[in-house]
Structures are given as C-alpha cells and as structure tokens.
Amino acid sequence: MKNKVLYILLSAAVLTLITGCTSGDKPSETKVVVGWLQKNQTNVFETYINKGGETVLNEKKKTGEITDFILLDGNTDPSTQINQANDLINSSVSAAILQPAEADGSAPALKALTDAGIPVVVVNARTNNTDELASAYVGSNDIVAGEMMGKFVLDKLGESGGYAHLMGMVGNSAAVERTTGIHNIMDTASGWTLLDEQSAEWQGDKASKFAQDWINLHGDNLDAIICDNDDMAIAAKLACIEAGRDDIVVIGVDGIQSALQMVKSGELDGTVFQDGNGQGKKAAELAIELTKGNQIQKEYWIDFVLVTQDNVDQYISE
C-alpha cells in the first residue's frame, strides 16, 4: 500500500514538472519606454529638434530596442513641464529627455525625474541644475552664436553705429547666453551704441512691433537689429522693408528654411545655423543608451555655422 501511494505521489510530481515545462508560459518582458518633455510642438525650430528625435525613437521601436515612447507638449510653460514630469514618473519610463522652457522654471521637472531614479538627457537649453543632475546635455554653445552675430554686424557695417537687440524668452538659457555673446563683441566696439534691448519672447509678431517702434524712435541712428532667433529676425526685417529701411542689417539664429530662403534672396542679411535635427537625434540616441545602463559622455556639442548668401545653398532643403 505504501509503495502504491509513493508511486501516485511521484507520478503527480512528474506530471506537474512536465506541465510546467510545456505550458507555454513565458516570463513577462520588461517594458522599455522613453519619455520626452518637449518645449513645444509648434515653433518651427523646436519642430526640427522634435522631428530628429522622433525619427530615432520610431526606428528603435521598430527594431525592438525600446517598447514605446511618450511625447508631451510643454507649450513653453515650465509649470506644465513640472506636471508632465510627474506623468512620466507615474508611467515608469526608463529614461527621459527634457527640452526646458526656462532655466529656473523647468529645473523642478529635472529634479523630480532624477529623484525618481530616471536618467535624463537635457537638450538645446539648460536648466540651472542640468550640470548637477542630468546624465547628459546636448546642445550648441549659445555664447558663440551671439558672438557670431556681433562679429557679423561689425564686419558688415564697420566701426560705428547704433543697434537694437531682440531677446528670446527671459530666463531661457539660450536667450541668456546669446545675449552674453552679443555683448562680448558689441560692448568692446567703442563706436557702437546699444539703442534698446527687449524680449519679444521668440515671437515674430512682438518682434515686428518692436522693430516698427525703433525705426520711428531712432530713425537713421538705427543701423542693425540683432535677434535671438529667426522668427524674430524675419519679422523685424519685414518691418524694416515695409518702413522703407531695408538698409538696416538684421541677423538671427536657427537657420530655419524660411530664413534661409530670405538670405538667398538678399532680404535677410544672415542667420546662424543651429542643427536642431542633429540635437534631437543625439538626445534620443543617448536616452536609449541610458535605458541599457550604458555610460555616456556628460556633454555633446554641435557647432553653429554662420550662413550668408555665400554658403546658404548648402543649408536649403530641397
């Protein structure tokens, strides 16, 4: 009787083992998700960054290197980005990309993500805690961009004149650093006078209004308008042309296609090309490396290029 019971127990154990081995159950796969807090999804230059990164993320999703990705529009609002950072934390993303709206205002978003153990790549502009908390920063040296614009104006117009400066969003690191670069050059040119300096918040309509006011106020004393981005530069130059002052030299930053076309036609004097697509691609590539636990460099710099009629054809897309 004992042998019979033992036989039954052994048979049941073997059956259990066989069933366990052949049931087809697989261990659940770990999801690898990359979250991206985009600055906004409407500004022309920002869309270059977004498109570059999204191209990489789509490719890596197809190859199975990541499970999915989440794109969130920050509407250039740091409070929105802080809330969205918490959304990414709740979604248990494996790594994140932050394109800050402001240096100070978006800093809590970075802190929240890193406090939750999520590695972050910051792209295009810095928060004031990027160096301390981010796994990597991808961008271009905005001080150099400002210096390029200042040198361009001096080379084109000579040793004396009056200029105005249209700044980007107050508190944004790119706007702050481009302003620093402009002053590095223009403040050392003793014959040049800064007539006014105002923030048009990257927006063409506000830039146009400032340009009109400056032309009316300063007349022939206004020789140049230096702009922190191309949207403002295009609007300022069109305002100059409309006022019969196409002699006013205007230059911006980004190298968006509409600005490049105006440089080619001679309407806009120049732009400083910023490879937004390249920045977005690199940020996405680094975020994916972080999901694998790989070590990456702390900073990745992509050079600015001065674009004039002499080299504009190299940068115009077909």
Rank of each mutant, 00 (worst) to 15 (best):
V5D: 07
Y7A: 14
L10A: 12
A12C: 14
A13S: 13
T16R: 04
L17G: 10
C21E: 07
S23D: 12
G24Y: 12
D25E: 14
K26N: 10
S28P: 15
V33S: 06
W36Q: 03
Q38Y: 10
T42Y: 11
V44M: 05
E46V: 11
Y48K: 12
I49L: 14
N50Q: 12
T55L: 14
E65W: 01
T67G: 03
F69D: 00
N75S: 12
N75H: 13
T76E: 13
P78Y: 02
A85K: 06
N86T: 14
N86H: 10
D87W: 03
I89L: 05
N90S: 15
V93M: 04
S94Q: 07
A95Y: 02
A96Q: 01
I97T: 03
Q99T: 10
E102L: 15
E102N: 14
A103C: 08
G105M: 06
S106T: 14
S106I: 03
A109N: 04
A109E: 07
A112S: 15
D115F: 05
A116R: 05
I118R: 00
P119V: 05
A134Y: 05
A134L: 08
S135Y: 04
S140H: 06
N141V: 11
D142T: 03
I143V: 15
G150S: 10
G150P: 05
L154V: 14
K156G: 01
E159W: 05
S160P: 01
G161A: 04
Y163N: 04
Y163Q: 03
V170E: 11
G171A: 09
A174T: 13
V176A: 02
T179M: 06
H183T: 06
T188S: 13
A189L: 09
S190E: 15
T193Y: 05
T193D: 11
E197P: 07
Q198G: 09
S199K: 06
S199D: 08
Q203P: 04
A207W: 00
K209I: 15
D213N: 15
D213P: 07
D213S: 14
W214S: 01
L217H: 06
D223Q: 13
A224R: 00
A224M: 02
D228F: 00
N229P: 03
D230V: 00
A236W: 03
A239V: 01
C240A: 12
A243H: 08
A243W: 10
R245L: 08
A259M: 07
E267M: 13
E267Y: 13
E267T: 14
V272D: 01
G278N: 09
G280D: 00
K282C: 01
E285S: 02
L290H: 08
L290E: 03
T291Q: 06
K292R: 11
Q297S: 13
Y300S: 10
L306S: 09
L306R: 01
V307A: 04
V312A: 03
V312Y: 04
Q314R: 13
Y315S: 04
I316L: 12
S317H: 07
